[in-house]
Design a protein around this nucleic acid. Structure first.
Lengths: 297, 297
DNA sequence: CACCAACTTCAATTCTTCTGAAATTGATAA
DNA sequence: TTATCAATTTCAGAAGAATTGAAGTTGGTG
């Protein structure tokens, strides 16, 4: 059975024009090289060199030099591709994320992740939690970032960080006079504007407030505008409204349970590509740290 | 260093879906296959299968399966081409031959030579001895068949057969009455038609006859027509006029030295392609035998 | 929960390839 | 032509890699 290694030796000898130099190049003794050549000639069925001074090839030798070089080049390239892929230097990565994370967290994370991976292609979808789960489940996205979901389904949830809900109101609102975190009872009689995220709050007091609310707004920018215009107050995860807004105040909630768990959503039973696995590990390590520093401000 | 053999094992396992069957296929034990796979994963830098039941591949495994299959296919094909070439099953063969051999000898020889070599391409030039030598020397022809030449030059001559000169005359010529081989002296006063081949005869008596000749004809068909028309007689190698002609007689010459040596003409110091080498050996063995049987008739 | 089949691990063995010394070869110069 | 010298080949032993069979794990299934 002819081995690629034997072809490597042959090509080196053909290029050197003698066994001694070729032996040095491949790091073997001349006798080892000589024997390899002999075996190669036996197996291929004919002489490769014109004389035993290896400076001129037979027609068969020329053919083997051409074909051999091509095989070596192609083999090494394939191995290179496999290694690059294994080390997640190439490949594609499709991420589905809720908007708050996609906007406030992912940009610097992705930038650092891709710094050493010039050949990785990334797609980033910002959609709501339910859709994130659907995209991951269907395989359209390799990995998702969303709020925790109840039903298991085909996906698995790994927490990244928890994000407390805060109260958003006009800065001349009477609640701003309170020198302490806001209790649910403080909101008695207030006008609540519901939004997509706040439905996750389990507190009974909140549910009652919510039930009496007449308005639901999904777009954060519109929501802030409405609050600023004095139409009511709203409750949002702090990450969602990151960045100060003139004319509105952000107040702490006393209820520590009023928070959402944000985490990775992955398909169960399907092994991720090396890039996805690497991103998973990177995200798990870096996102909590980044969010912690962001929420300090 | 990753070996092609390891890729073969991997591809077999990926295709079998389990180690046991793959081990049977490649003729190894399951443990050998398992170790090869482990080594491959270490060297490539990632897992190839989702679990240790080898029935589903990781993304990396799929990549390796694709690239690996292609490498194996391509390598085996290259080796096949080299072997076919070495065994002269493919390649090209350019032969330059004097017309008598090209017409009377080469057709059946080539037919048999090519029977087991469907992919060999042959070119056959029929030209005179001097040109044969020139074509071989310049490398245009791989091998030549011609009469022996004096000067060595860049070519080498290997005898194949010797071809006696015979006398060709009208069948009612008075020489036909002789019950013995013709002596040079018998030709005293006869009209000789010279031809391209007969100049090779060294006998002094012939040279004198030749010097007095007024006509030289190179084309054998014309030559025979002239003899038949009674314009004179001529002397030709017997192979040249193989096949009977009505109205002309072929007479033996007493001078045993009146013969030409026909043989192979090859370039010195240049190794022949495998096809050429095979044809050389074949010709050396078959042509003398064929000619002997032809000249018996 | 126990069983079974598939897989992995380990140490011993076998097979391959390599090395270093000696012999051979072929070119070059005397 | 012969002497010389470096390259190559040959050979036997050494080193290294792959393989085996037995024992130990593991994961799925009834």
């Amino acid at each position: 059975m002819i081995k690629l290694e034997a072809l490597r030796v042959f090509v080196t000898v053909a290029e050197s024009g003698n066994i001694k130099d070729a032996a040095d190049t491949v790091g073997r003794t001349a006798s080892a090289v000589s024997m390899t050549l002999k075996q190669l000639e036996d197996e291929i069925g004919g002489p490769l060199f014109q004389t035993d001074r290896k400076n001129s090839l037979t027609a068969l030798g020329n053919l083997m030099l051409d074909l051999g070089r091509e095989q070596i080049r192609s083999f090494d390239k394939s191995i290179g591709i496999m290694r690059a892929f294994a080390h997640s230097r190439i490949g594609s990565l499709s991420i589905a994320s809720v908007p708050s994370v996609a906007t406030n967290v992912l940009p610097p994370i992705l930038q650092r992740f891709l710094e050493t991976r010039p050949q990785v292609e990334v797609e980033l979808f910002d959609i709501d939690s339910a859709q994130v789960r659907r995209m991951v489940e269907s395989g359209v996205a390799d990995i998702g970032i969303a709020g925790e979901s109840r039903a298991g389904g085909g996906v698995e949830f790994t927490p990244l960080f928890s994000d407390r809900f805060k109260l958003l109101c006009k800065d001349d609102h009477e609640l701003c006079q309170l020198e302490r975190p806001v209790e649910w009872s403080d909101l008695h009689g207030a006008t609540l504007i519901r939004n997509g995220a706040s439905d996750r709050i389990d507190a009974e007091a909140y549910k009652q407030l919510s039930a009496r609310s007449l308005m639901t707004v999904y777009n954060v920018t519109s929501l802030v505008a409405l609050v600023k215009a004095g139409l009511g107050l709203t409750i949002l995860p702090s990450l969602t409204m990151h960045g100060a807004h003139d004319g509105v105040a952000v107040l702490e909630l006393a209820d520590a349970a009023a928070s959402r768990q944000v985490g990775l959503v992955e398909r169960r039973d399907v092994s991720p590509s090396p890039v996805a696995a690497a991103f998973r590990a990177f995200a798990l390590k870096e996102i909590p740290a980044l969010v912690a520093s962001r929420l300090e401000d």
